[in-house]
C-alpha cells in the first residue's frame, strides 16, 4: 500500500455545499465520479489543475481542500 502524505476535506466540503453529490462535483471539475471517489479515499493524488478546479468549485483556497503532511525523505547514502 502506498503511503500518501496528502489528505483532503472533500467529503466535508461536499456536505457543507448542500450535500453535493460526487457526480455533481465530478461534472463541475471535468472528472469522472470514480476519480472523485478515489481522491476522497486518498487513493489518488490529483494533478495541480484538477486540485485547483476542486478548490474553485468550493470557492476556497487550495490549502483548505488539500492538506500536505511533510515527511522527511530517506537520505541517499
Amino acid at each position: 500500500m502506498v503511503k500518501r502524505n496528502i489528505q483532503n476535506n472533500i467529503r466535508r466540503l461536499r456536505f457543507n455545499a448542500d450535500e453535493m453529490t460526487q457526480q455533481k462535483l465530478a461534472d463541475e471539475v471535468g472528472a469522472s465520479r470514480q476519480t472523485i471517489v478515489a481522491i476522497e479515499k486518498g487513493n489518488y493524488s490529483p494533478s495541480l489543475e484538477l486540485a485547483f478546479r476542486i478548490a474553485h468549485t468550493f470557492k476556497i483556497p487550495l490549502e483548505e481542500v488539500f492538506i500536505y503532511e511533510h515527511v522527511e525523505l530517506p537520505k541517499k547514502k
Binding site: G30, A31, S32, R33, T35, A38, P46, L50
Partner: peptide
C-alpha cells in the same frame, strides 16, 4: 459512460 479523465 464515464468520461476519460487524467486518472484514467
Amino acid at each position: 459512460i464515464p468520461i476519460e479523465d487524467e486518472r484514467d
